[in-house]
Amino acid sequence: MVSDRLSDNEGGGGDQRPAALFAYTGKFYEVFPYYLAIGMSYEQFWEQDCDLVKYYRRAAQIKQDLQNQEAWLQGAYFYEALIDAAPILRAFAKKGTKPTPYRESPYELSTRQDKKQQKQLQEKHDDQAKAYMEVFMVSVNKKFQEKGGGVSG
């Protein structure tokens, strides 16, 4: 009589399997909880295509990368908001100091905008930078003129 289980008389108990026939079973049971944790069902792990584990592992890695990217992005928004509010948080800030306004749109993470929209946005930012620089230059020139060392522009 041939059986895949050891008899109680041989000291193996009724539920243990011979090591030679089931050498890899322990490893499967060891990794099984991981695959359950990433969403694989019992039937998928034990009864369906063995290639599914590769796809579940890759999907879990992609999910983790996306979560990491999302956390980084949230930190970037928080950091920018903190920097924007910094002028009013200084101990000796001038009266009437205002924070930099919060950004009008989220960070562009993909290239969904067409070329025309990108060009318009770039021109808008360039105009804002130019206006800021002109205001800065006027204030610097004014300071020099007050000190008597005028700068011509």
Rank of each mutant, 00 (worst) to 15 (best):
M1V: 07
V2R: 13
S3T: 14
D4L: 15
L6A: 06
S7M: 09
S7L: 11
S7K: 11
N9P: 00
G12R: 09
G12L: 06
G12N: 07
G14W: 09
G14Y: 07
D15Y: 14
R17C: 03
R17H: 07
A19D: 06
A20N: 06
L21E: 12
L21Y: 10
F22P: 00
K27C: 11
Y29D: 09
E30K: 15
V31G: 03
F32H: 12
Y35A: 03
I38N: 02
G39T: 11
S41Q: 01
Y42W: 14
E43M: 08
F45Q: 02
E47P: 02
Q48P: 00
Q48E: 12
D49P: 07
C50S: 15
D51V: 12
K54M: 09
K54Y: 12
K54G: 07
Y56K: 12
Q61K: 15
Q61S: 15
K63H: 00
Q67C: 10
Q67W: 08
Q67R: 15
Q69L: 12
Q69W: 05
A71M: 11
W72S: 08
Q74N: 08
G75P: 00
A76T: 11
Y77V: 03
F78I: 07
F78P: 00
A81P: 02
A81C: 08
I83N: 06
A85M: 04
A85D: 03
A85C: 05
A85Q: 05
A86R: 04
L89P: 04
F92S: 15
F92W: 12
F92L: 14
A93T: 07
K94D: 13
K95H: 13
P99D: 04
T100M: 08
Y102H: 13
Y107L: 03
E108H: 00
L109W: 01
L109I: 05
S110H: 11
S110T: 14
T111C: 10
R112H: 10
Q113S: 06
K116T: 11
Q118W: 02
Q118E: 06
Q122Y: 00
H125G: 00
H125N: 00
D127I: 01
Q128G: 04
Q128D: 05
A129N: 04
A129P: 01
A131P: 02
A131F: 02
Y132P: 01
E134P: 03
V135F: 06
S139G: 04
V140D: 04
N141L: 11
F144V: 08
F144C: 13
Q145E: 13
G149N: 08
V151C: 04
